[in-house]
Amino acid sequence: MDVFMKGLSKAKEGVVAAAEKTKQGVAEAAGKTKEGVLYVGSKTKEGVVHGVATVAEKTKEQVTNVGGAVVTGVTAVAQKTVEGAGSIAAATGFVKKDQLGKNEEGAPQEGILEDMPVDPDNEAYEMPSEEGYQDYEPEA
């Protein structure tokens, strides 16, 4: 019985440690998101679009440190934060509304985080759909 109880105690310690790591990862992701939003706020009209992409990228980098179902929630929060940063930029006159959601080359930025393969159960990952990809044929 002692062996059984000791095993359960060790398992509990492992769960607590994993929860603490997840909590730490979420806190880091939130900190990076805040950094990115402050970065966007300090940019001029020309830099705002690039700044919004930076927020998304920093958040995406930190999301990889967070495991399990938390990833889905962090990704949703990050996307809403990026959308909010863009709205703030438009409201303050840093950028025109028609410039939001495009990178410096004018290509749409939507789907940055949505296409990231995420499995809350950590069982399997699927690649994003290939609808947006084109076949590449090298020139002879």
Results as ranks from 00 to 15, higher is better:
residue 108 P to V: 07
residue 140 A to V: 09
residue 131 E to Q: 07
residue 126 E to L: 06
residue 106 G to F: 09
residue 3 V to W: 02
residue 37 V to H: 00
residue 95 V to G: 04
residue 76 A to D: 03
residue 40 V to C: 04
residue 114 E to M: 03
residue 134 Q to R: 12
residue 47 G to F: 14
residue 99 Q to G: 14
residue 63 V to D: 01
residue 35 E to Y: 12
residue 73 G to R: 06
residue 23 K to F: 15
residue 77 V to N: 01
residue 90 A to C: 15
residue 107 A to C: 05
residue 78 A to Y: 15
residue 76 A to R: 10
residue 46 E to I: 05
residue 74 V to D: 11
residue 98 D to Y: 05
residue 16 V to A: 06
residue 26 V to A: 02
residue 48 V to G: 01
residue 135 D to P: 04
residue 2 D to M: 04
residue 45 K to H: 02
residue 61 E to V: 06
residue 56 A to K: 10
residue 20 E to N: 12
residue 48 V to E: 00
residue 104 E to W: 05
residue 64 T to L: 10
residue 33 T to A: 06
residue 15 V to M: 12
residue 126 E to I: 11
residue 85 A to M: 14
residue 137 E to G: 07
residue 40 V to Y: 15
residue 28 E to K: 06
residue 97 K to D: 14
residue 13 E to M: 08
residue 100 L to I: 09
residue 44 T to R: 01
residue 125 Y to V: 13
residue 50 H to S: 10
residue 22 T to D: 00
residue 86 G to Y: 13
residue 56 A to N: 02
residue 79 Q to V: 06
residue 115 D to P: 04
residue 15 V to H: 01
residue 56 A to M: 14
residue 18 A to K: 02
residue 47 G to Y: 13
residue 127 M to K: 11
residue 116 M to F: 04
residue 5 M to L: 00
residue 38 L to R: 15
residue 102 K to S: 01
residue 129 S to E: 08
residue 15 V to N: 00
residue 67 G to F: 10
residue 60 K to A: 13
residue 81 T to M: 13
residue 45 K to L: 14
residue 5 M to S: 03
residue 70 V to S: 01
residue 2 D to P: 01
residue 66 V to D: 01
residue 55 V to W: 15
residue 17 A to C: 05
residue 79 Q to R: 08
residue 65 N to F: 09
residue 73 G to D: 02
residue 140 A to Y: 08
residue 36 G to K: 15
residue 2 D to Y: 06
residue 29 A to R: 02
residue 106 G to D: 04
residue 71 V to S: 06
residue 135 D to G: 05
residue 47 G to S: 14
residue 56 A to E: 01
residue 54 T to C: 15
residue 96 K to H: 08
residue 73 G to N: 13
residue 98 D to K: 10
residue 24 Q to D: 06
residue 34 K to C: 06
residue 63 V to W: 15
residue 103 N to A: 05
residue 109 Q to L: 04
residue 106 G to S: 13
residue 98 D to L: 10
residue 46 E to Q: 06
residue 102 K to H: 14
residue 26 V to Q: 00
residue 46 E to G: 15
residue 110 E to M: 07
residue 74 V to I: 03
residue 135 D to M: 08
residue 78 A to Q: 03
residue 100 L to Q: 07
residue 71 V to N: 02
residue 105 E to W: 01
residue 133 Y to P: 09
residue 114 E to W: 09
residue 48 V to F: 07
residue 16 V to L: 10
residue 30 A to P: 00
residue 1 M to G: 00
residue 22 T to K: 00
residue 58 K to E: 01
residue 5 M to I: 00
residue 88 I to Y: 13
residue 80 K to E: 02
residue 5 M to F: 03
residue 86 G to L: 14
residue 135 D to C: 06
residue 16 V to E: 04
residue 139 E to W: 10
residue 136 Y to I: 09
residue 138 P to T: 06
residue 131 E to Y: 04
residue 100 L to M: 06
residue 63 V to F: 11
residue 68 G to C: 04
residue 32 K to A: 11
residue 8 L to M: 05
residue 111 G to M: 15
residue 64 T to Y: 13
